[in-house]
């Protein structure tokens, strides 16, 4: 291939050469090129005027990020199956905030992978919330057929549990049973209102079946902002950020 790349241009220069004889214009032709790549690392000098420019933004940002907005009673951690403290807090907070916008929501679904960090015990800052949810995901409600909900349940089973709220289920031998949504037994012939976020509603994480809901409503609120609201509300009411492993998903290993 390289040999061809080299010879072809010469052949093509012949008409060009004739063209040049006919015109008295100056002409420029590419003769060679070179390539370099600079790694920008700690040995590189800094342009102090640029640092000086962004420093006030950085300081304001840090002050904003370091702002303590709430307290946890205990660390909200992630590891563990099928439920996690972080997952349960996140799902419950999402349901509570979603219901403010749409009272018809019956349950929520998100993924463990979407929650990017944990909360320590004690002070929670804006930065902690950004780290938990760095993406610009926005809340979406989906009206789903019972069959689609069944697919979602199968997905949750396959993943040994995902962060959910408003739904409870037990899993045995790779199958879900005793499924309830909004305290009512799951009925595959009914439709259900799910709260999730755009990334998943758009079929992310191989949830293609979520792309074909009966109805979709974009709430237009970022999940991160909903979490910030949730924590601010708790703090305003003198409450702490809490979560329990309440058996919403039980894997029966017997």
């Amino acid at each position: 291939m390289k040999i061809q790349t080299h010879f072809r241009p010469f052949i093509l220069t012949v008409p060009l050469w004739i063209a040049l004889i006919c015109s008295c214009q100056k002409h420029l032709t590419l003769s060679k090129n070179e390539y370099k790549q600079y790694g920008i690392d700690q040995q590189a000098g800094e342009d102090s005027s640029i640092v000086k420019y962004y420093l006030p933004y950085k300081e304001k940002m840090q002050a904003e990020m370091d702002k303590v907005i709430g307290q946890t009673e205990q660390a909200l951690t992630k590891p563990g199956q099928p439920e996690t403290l972080m997952g349960n807090y996140f799902a419950d907070a999402m349901l509570k905030e979603g219901l403010k916008k749409d009272p018809n929501i019956q349950f929520t679904f998100s993924t463990k992978g979407g929650l990017r960090s944990t909360f320590p015990k004690g002070d929670i800052t804006v930065s902690d919330v950004f780290e938990l949810m760095p993406f610009e995901n926005e809340m979406v409600t989906l009206k789903l057929t019972g069959a689609s909900v069944q697919q979602l349940i199968d997905f949750i089973v396959k993943k040994d549990g995902e962060p959910i709220s408003g739904m409870r289920l037990k899993i045995k031998d790779g199958k879900a049973y005793d499924i309830t949504i909004g305290n009512q037994p799951f009925d595959i012939n009914k439709t259900y209102n799910l709260l999730t976020y755009d990334y998943l509603a758009d079929g992310g994480d191989e949830l293609d079946f979520l792309k074909k809901p009966v109805e979709r409503k974009d709430i237009g609120i970022k999940l991160r902002d909903a979490l910030l609201d949730n924590i601010n509300d708790l703090t305003a009411q003198g409450k702490k950020i809490t979560a329990q492993l309440d058996g919403r998903i039980i894997i029966d290993k017997n």
């Binding site: 050469w17 040049l20 015109s23 590419l30 003769s31």
Partner: peptide
Amino acid sequence: LDYFFNRESGKHKMVSAV
């Protein structure tokens, strides 16, 4: 990426190609 060009003035000279 550095590209080197040959400037050509007048009508009878021809430059090299790529």
